[in-house]
Amino acid sequence: MKIHYRSNRQLHRYLYGGWRLTDELKIKLDGKRVLLYLTFKRDFEVTYNPNNVIAVDVNENNVTLAVFKDGGLSDVYRIETNLGRIVIAYSERRKRITKGRSTRDREVRKALRKLRERERKMDIIYKTARIIEELALANNAVVVVGNVHRGKRRLINESGNKRLTHRIHQWSVATLVRVLGGKPIHVVEVSEAYSSSTDPFTGNRIKSFNPSVIRTAVRGVRRIRVVKIALRLTRLGNGLVLDRDVIGAINIGLKYLSTGGSPMALASTGPHEVRLKLMTPNQGPTPPTEIKAIKIH
């Protein structure tokens, strides 16, 4: 049986980029269409410096990255994914479409298919994974992520709210980890227990966080837009004020580095300066916008 395919850039990248086609073929019925999924494989030689780490803390609306070079904290990135807000928005749209009507209704099914929630979320996840991959390759680093499966189960068990449980299920955290696993980088999962509630500089327990909102301008393709960022700040033992997600990313990196000794986020002597760099999935690893609220000396 001969199947004619429509030429596209993604297929050409796999056909002529050193990938080889496997015998695996997946068939899916989509209404009157039949979708065929081809599988390509490629062998990569992954090299990395174990003292260079990209620590990834995945949250509901952002992915925070702490970059360690030679065991010391170097940079912090915050990728605004807004996946949590997207899940809530699509949930409300589905409620309006199905209100007083059955999901078996032809017009309802057609309207639900047009939402394309999964496609939008997967686009954000793939772009976020691409940023992490580029940072890991540029720094010859290992990517360390928290054990999202265990954390997700704990949040579901502790939550008695059905809407929050739905948001956790739609979080797509595990999908990001799976996409990273298919990249030519070394990915390690570590326990993220108490990573957001422990002072990375003193090891003491953090008692509370204070909510804060800042606004910053982000240059897009056509215009400059204002982004509102919700932070949860606390003052650490050394007088430094940090966001909860940044603390989580730093502690995840320190947990991996601690297997080879007793690392410190910063050296005990000498001046230091680390800025939290704001990014969006559509921007590369060198964003023009920085949140200058974090300055370590």
Rank of each mutant, 00 (worst) to 15 (best):
G181I: 02
G181D: 12
G181H: 04
G181V: 04
G182Y: 03
G182D: 12
K183S: 09
K183T: 12
K183Q: 14
P184G: 15
I185T: 02
I185M: 03
H186R: 12
H186G: 01
V187N: 14
V187F: 07
V188S: 07
E189V: 11
V190E: 07
V190T: 05
S191Q: 04
S191T: 11
E192Q: 10
E192R: 12
A193M: 03
Y194A: 14
Y194P: 05
S195L: 02
S195V: 10
S195I: 02
S196F: 03
S196E: 06
T198G: 00
T198N: 03
T198E: 08
D199R: 05
D199C: 02
F201Y: 00
F201G: 02
G203Q: 10
N204D: 14
R205T: 09
R205Y: 00
K207S: 10
K207Q: 08
S208Y: 07
N210M: 06
N210S: 07
N210T: 14
S212Q: 13
S212T: 08
S212V: 05
V213S: 15
I214E: 11
I214Y: 05
I214A: 14
R215H: 09
T216E: 12
T216R: 11
A217T: 13
V218R: 11
R219S: 15
G220H: 05
R222Y: 14
R223T: 12
V226Q: 14
V227N: 13
V227F: 14
K228E: 15
I229G: 09
I229H: 07
A230Q: 09
A230D: 14
A230T: 13
A230I: 10
R232G: 04
R232A: 08
R232E: 13
L233I: 03
L233M: 08
L233H: 00
T234C: 05
T234N: 05
T234P: 01
R235Q: 07
R235W: 07
L236D: 06
L236W: 02
L236T: 06
L236P: 10
G237C: 01
G237A: 00
G237K: 00
G239T: 10
L240F: 04
V241L: 07
L242E: 03
D243M: 01
D243E: 00
